[in-house]
Amino acid sequence: MRNRKARLTAFAGALALVTGFGVPAYAQTAAAPTHAQTTAAPSSMVADAGAPAVYGRAAYLMDARSGAALFGKAADTRMPIASLTKTMTAYVVLRSAKPTDLVEIAPQDARYAEDGGGTTADLRPGDRLPVGELLYALMLPSGADAAHALARTYGPGVPGFVAKMNATARSLGMNDTHYVNADGLPTPAGDGWSTARDQAVLAAKALQVPLIEGVAGTRYHEVAATDEHGAYGWRNTNRLLAEPGAIGLKTGFTRAAGYSLAFAGERDGRRLVGVILGESISSRRFDTAQALLSWAPTRASA
C-alpha cells in the first residue's frame, strides 16, 4: 500500500534539536518464536474489569516515568509489529548520527520500497537530505525508502544496522524482540517480531530523545528545495494526534501483523505510553488508544 504523493511546497523545516548517544559495541540475535509463542495470549498482567474494550490481539499501557504497568492483554506474546520497527530505526540512527548529517538517496533505496510494496516518502535518488529531515520521512508517511537509506548509511550496510537494532533491543531489556530489517516489511526468510510490552519500553525510551518526540508529534512537515535536494511534504499517518494531549508515536500495518499503534499522551501531569498490536480495523486502534489514555488516570488513582 502506497501513500499518495504530498503536494510539494517551499517552506523551510528547521532542525534545532540535537542528540548524542554511544553505540553499543555488541550484537545478539534472539531465537525465532515458537508456534505457541505467536498464537497464545497469556500475559503476566490482568486488565481491570472497568478497562476499555481492546480488540487487538495484544496491548500494553504503562506509566512512562515510573514504568508501572496499567493495562495488559497478551502483553508478552511475540508477533509481527510491522512499521513500529521504524521507531527502533530512528533511535539507533540518532545514537551515532547528527540531525545535520547529509544522507544521499540511492536508487536502491527507492527500489526497495517499490519492490517490497511498502509505504514510501517518495524520496528522489541523488537528493542529499539531512538526517533530521529523513526522520520525518521515516516516521510520518512511514517511508521504507527512508528506512533503507538510513540503515544502509549507518550500518554501514543494512545487515550491520539490523545487528545494531537487535543489540540495542537487548541493552534495553527487550528480550522478546528480534528485528530482520529496518522497516518491518515481511521478508522471504520470515518477519521480525516483538511484544506489546517490549515496544512500550522502546516507545518510552525513544520519546526521551527530543528530536524523536518532536517528529512523532508533527502532523505535517514540509521541506523546502535547496541545492542539495528537492522539496517534499509529508503527512503523519497517526490520527491520534488530533486528540488533546496526544504525543505520537508510530503506526504500522502488514497483513501478518494487522494494524498496530505505538502511542503516548499526557494525562493529569503523567506521561502514558501504550502499544496495540494485531488490530483488524484501522480506525479502531486510534479509538482504543484514546480510550486507554482517558481511562488510565482512573486506574492509577484507584
Rank of each mutant, 00 (worst) to 15 (best):
Gly22Glu: 12
Pro24Val: 01
Ala25Thr: 10
Ala27Glu: 08
Ala27Gly: 09
Gln28Thr: 05
Ala30Glu: 14
Ala31His: 08
Ala31Trp: 00
Pro33Asn: 02
Thr38Met: 13
Ala40Ile: 01
Ala41Tyr: 10
Pro42Gly: 07
Pro42Lys: 13
Pro42Val: 14
Ser43Gly: 09
Ser44Phe: 14
Val46Glu: 12
Asp48Glu: 14
Ala49Phe: 00
Gly50Ile: 01
Ala51Leu: 08
Ala53Arg: 09
Ala58Glu: 01
Ala59Thr: 09
Met62Glu: 03
Arg65Asn: 13
Lys73Glu: 03
Thr77Leu: 13
Met79Glu: 03
Pro80Gln: 01
Ile81Thr: 02
Ile81Trp: 14
Ser83Leu: 05
Ser83Trp: 04
Lys86Pro: 04
Lys86Ser: 05
Lys86Val: 01
Thr89Glu: 06
Ala90Cys: 12
Val92Trp: 04
Val93Pro: 05
Arg95Gln: 14
Ala97Glu: 07
Lys98Tyr: 05
Leu102Trp: 04
Leu102His: 07
Leu102Val: 00
Val103Tyr: 01
Glu104Ala: 14
Pro107Phe: 04
Gln108Glu: 13
Gln108Val: 02
Asp109Lys: 08
Ala110Cys: 06
Arg111Trp: 13
Tyr112Glu: 09
Tyr112Cys: 06
Glu114Ala: 15
Asp115Leu: 15
Asp122Gly: 15
Asp122Trp: 15
Gly126Ile: 06
Val131Glu: 03
Glu133Gly: 15
Leu134Asp: 07
Leu135Phe: 06
Tyr136Ser: 11
Leu138Ser: 08
Leu140Asn: 08
Ser142Met: 11
Ala144Gln: 03
Ala144Pro: 09
Ala144Asp: 04
His148Glu: 12
Ala149Gly: 06
Ala149His: 05
Ala151Cys: 11
Arg152Met: 14
Arg152Val: 00
